[in-house]
């Protein structure tokens, strides 16, 4: 698919639906995340391909925030074959299916798997998981869903 900025995400299997805000880099070169006081807001990493373009498009969302569940609180439940729909600015909806979901320590974040080049359009959904490290004020793990592009489903009905 040609480049078109994503505007919404819908993951029916876990009841996750949100508009998408563009995310860049923090001054320390870590990836920006949506505001933690808006935990149901997901965001698209703007230096990654747009969903449907060849390459790994990266979408991030909180597991929780402000005392509430986040948009990706149930991301760990996604199984192979589950559907993810991404609405784009060009009114096309890119459809992906889950290939696998992994929970990995943040100290061993698989940057190559997440950000490395791919032959086809792919999608990554990322949130936090595992136990909470009080000292570091951070979850110890990331939950990452890897999905592959299957086609366009039609006009976007959200976003």
């Amino acid at each position: 698919m040609p480049r078109s900025v994503p505007v919404s995400i819908d993951v029916p299997a876990i009841g996750a639906r949100s508009s998408l805000v563009p995310l860049g880099l923090n001054p320390d070169r870590t990836v920006e995340v949506p505001p933690v006081d808006r935990p149901m807001q997901a965001g698209w990493y703007e230096h990654s391909p747009t969903p449907g373009e060849t390459g790994p498009s990266v979408v991030l969302g909180h597991v929780d925030g402000g005392g509430k569940d986040g948009i990706f609180a149930r991301l760990h439940e996604l199984k192979p074959g589950d559907e993810i729909r991404i609405g784009r600015e060009d009114k096309q909806v890119a459809r992906f299916v889950v290939k696998r979901t992994e929970q990995l320590p943040k100290t061993d974040f698989p940057a190559d798997q997440v950000y490395g080049d791919t032959k086809e359009p792919e999608l990554r959904l990322i949130t936090c998981g595992g136990s909470f490290d009080e000292a570091a004020n951070s979850y110890r793990d990331n939950v990452i869903t890897f999905a592959v592009f299957t086609g366009v489903v039609g006009a976007s009905d959200s976003g």
Binding site: R29, T30, P56, L60, A111, S138
Partner: peptide, 25 residues
């Protein structure tokens, strides 16, 4: 060029933390 034009460093911090919930409560 790399498909991800700028590769972020480290792991994403996508959680407010459960103790935030406790404090709120």
């Amino acid at each position: 060029r790399a498909q991800v034009a700028v590769r972020p460093e480290g792991a994403p911090e996508t959680g407010g933390g459960p103790q935030e919930t406790g404090i709120g409560l």
